[in-house]
Amino acid sequence: VSKLITEALSVSQERVGMSLVALKKALAAAGYDVEKNNSRIKLSLKSLVNKGILVQTRGTGASGSFKLS
Rank of each mutant, 00 (worst) to 15 (best):
V1H: 00
V1D: 05
L4W: 02
L4V: 05
I5W: 02
I5G: 00
T6I: 10
E7M: 01
E7N: 09
E7Q: 03
A8K: 03
A8H: 04
L9M: 08
V11A: 13
V11R: 12
V11E: 09
Q13L: 04
Q13F: 01
E14V: 01
E14S: 05
R15M: 04
V16G: 02
V16S: 13
M18W: 04
S19H: 05
L20V: 11
L20F: 13
V21Y: 06
V21Q: 15
V21E: 14
A22S: 14
A22K: 07
A22Y: 12
A22W: 09
K24F: 02
K25I: 01
K25E: 10
A26P: 00
A26M: 12
A26Y: 10
L27H: 00
L27S: 01
L27Y: 01
A28K: 13
A28N: 07
A28D: 05
A29P: 02
A29W: 04
A29Q: 10
A30Y: 05
A30I: 04
G31W: 03
G31D: 01
G31H: 04
G31V: 08
Y32W: 09
Y32M: 15
Y32Q: 09
D33S: 12
D33E: 15
V34M: 09
E35N: 11
E35Y: 12
K36P: 01
K36Q: 08
K36E: 03
N37W: 10
N37Y: 05
N37D: 03
S39W: 02
I41Y: 03
K42Q: 09
K42E: 15
L43T: 14
L43A: 15
L43Q: 15
L43H: 13
K46C: 01
S47Y: 06
L48E: 01
V49H: 03
V49N: 02
N50P: 10
N50M: 03
K51N: 10
K51T: 06
K51S: 07
K51G: 04
G52S: 08
G52P: 03
I53S: 10
T57G: 09
T57D: 10
T57H: 13
T57M: 11
R58P: 12
T60Y: 06
T60L: 09
G61A: 09
G61N: 14
A62N: 14
S63V: 12
G64H: 06
S65E: 15
F66K: 11
F66Q: 10
K67D: 07
L68Y: 07
S69I: 08
S69V: 10
